[in-house]
Design a protein around this nucleic acid. Structure first.
Lengths: 343, 343
DNA sequence: CTGAAAGCGCTTACAG
DNA sequence: CTGAAAGCGCTTACAG
């Protein structure tokens, strides 16, 4: 394959001049320029090799979203909520013409060490040492849905407030008996936490989910209910069993709080399967808003988790660099048809 | 920032030895190795800089999906069918630990020229010269849903057969009056092609859509119908007007063929809005299968466009390199509830 | 406007 | 097992 020096030689000019033809053509006399261009064409030279250019420039014009360690690239693209987030990142990329790299963190930081990007976005971490490889490389990075302290850029949603609003909404409708659908920390089989036992702190998945648990707890406390008395089911987003276990674990509950949107959607299906009419018999409010949530039957009352916005802001933070900054987004309850007055 | 040579000096060894410590530690005497590692830690050396390593190795361990020119990164992540395709690419990436880069082709090949990847997947092209920048770089690449001739790797779906099956299905149900929902070649306002005029070849969007038109035409010809007599509406996937225009343009049709899945789903909604019962009053079959298609009311009869599989195979093709190869996938009709006998 | 030179950070035969 | 040297392909002050 032809290199810059080859076309320079063929055109009888120095490397610098050839380089200029491709990078700052206005600095080169038209005649010389044409000679170089002709030589390039003849040799099939595809333009300066990004490898060399990049070693010099040190810039990749790309940012990475690191996929959760246990997910891989495919799962990241399969999860509708994460996908919303990716789309937000994509929007910021489009603004600056940057490429979007999805790096798998499956190898425990190996991907991050080698990724050819100018910065990182961590979309789902549960421990700060996952960002170490990025910090070591002295590349800008931002963390999402996790409080990294003041020294690291972050975009967070006030999940506690969002969850509080969800629970408060159900309380205001007169509900007094609840069930909670929660996540696991990592992929695995569903687990039930029956009522009446103190909650172990692992009853919610990621830190942001634990915040949600606090939000629910805050609201329940206002009417004298303890979260310890509310059955909780932890399950993967796609787990169809979750809804069944929930309904079995809280047969008398009239109101269900879901930390995810898929859980809530599947719950709607399972409720119908059991002959329950939503929201006449039971109410459910989800968390996060995906297109499906507006199309379900009935449409799902849910919290807008600001996924796209999170992605957009996180990407800006790393694209712009500079000192650490923090965004805290306020989620908003979207009232739709899956919640109604208690019987 | 510390470089390899800095830690080498600090540890009192040569660059090669320091390099070995990070790349082939088993070649270095433990004592020396520890000395180097200590020096690295002390200097905060993050390990070999990918830039340098890469210039040497020439490998990026990443492949690019180039987003359609008029889309950008965000739109690519927003389109559910393209998203299916991306997921397939992601699966192959996970198998080999490669990163997935979404490069925007908005700058007319500029992104491709500079992308730091080992190969390209073109997921949506309508002219072969869009792959020129990749060919010039002498990087492996594959083309999807487009016949590039034998010299270029490709993954295609036999859309003509898929469309034929869709149309034949409706014919077998006794339908004789049709409407077709088609795509535009590039984003824009919807267009109607009334019945009775010869079809201009642009009545479908991408080449693969034109294949679908042929498939419909094949089937219709078998019962003596000309495609020229079938109203066609071209519109963007998200265009809610498409269904309205279709129903207005073909008020007596009982069967509708949609080249996309979103069109079909929106059609279902519009039909209901007009008081039409599907499939009692009208039948519709879509093209491509996304999760929503199974959840719609009624569930959508559609053609499985093999999106994930396409992505997976295309990625393999470029990851493996080698001589050009071709996959032709056979789509399959998925029978669900949106089609029934003609009245 | 043009060219000689240094350098971006690393790895890999090669000789010892 | 260790080190001196060449090279990956390019760009950018700098001097002319």
């Amino acid at each position: 394959v032809a290199r810059l020096i080859d076309v320079a030689k063929a055109a009888g000019v120095s490397r610098s001049t050839a380089s200029n033809v491709f990078n700052t053509p206005e600095l080169v006399r038209p005649k010389l320029r044409q000679r170089v261009e002709a030589a390039a064409r003849e040799l099939g030279y595809p333009g300066p090799d990004p490898k060399g250019r990049l070693l010099r420039a040190g810039k990749f014009n790309a940012i990475a979203v690191v996929a959760p360690a246990d997910w891989g690239v495919a799962e990241a693209l399969r999860n509708p909520v994460f996908e919303l987030f990716l789309r937000g990142v994509g929007e910021s990329c489009d603004e600056t013409g940057a490429n979007l790299v999805i790096v798998s963190d499956a190898t425990g930081g190996g991907g991050i060490k080698a990724a050819l990007v100018d910065g990182f976005i961590f979309g789902r971490i549960d421990h700060l040492n996952q960002v170490e490889p990025a910090r070591l490389r002295r590349l800008p990075f931002a963390v999402v849905d996790f409080d990294p302290g003041p020294g690291i850029s972050s975009v967070r949603v006030d999940s506690r407030a969002g969850a509080y609003a969800a629970a408060r909404h159900l309380i205001d409708l007169g509900h007094r008996s609840f069930g909670i659908l929660s996540f696991l920390r990592s992929l695995g089989p569903a687990r039930v936490h029956p009522a009446g036992r103190p909650r172990d702190p692992e009853a919610a998945g990621m830190p942001t989910d634990q915040e949600k648990l606090r939000g629910y707890s805050d609201a329940l406390a206002e009417i004298g209910l303890s979260i310890d008395d509310v059955p909780i089911v932890q399950a993967d987003p796609w787990d169809r069993e979750a809804a069944q276990m929930m309904l079995d674990a809280a047969p008398d509950a009239t109101a269900f709080l879901s930390m995810g949107v898929m859980h809530a959607l599947l719950f709607l299906e399972e409720a119908r399967r059991r002959g329950l009419v939503v929201p006449r018999d039971v109410s459910v409010v989800g968390y996060n808003d995906i297109p499906d949530a507006a199309r379900s039957d009935p449409p799902l009352t849910t919290v807008d988790g600001m996924g796209v916005e999170k992605g957009r802001l996180a990407a800006r933070l790393v694209l712009e660099g500079g000192p650490p900054r923090h965004h805290i987004l306020q989620p908003q309850l979207i009232l739709r048809g899956s919640t109604g007055s208690a019987r």
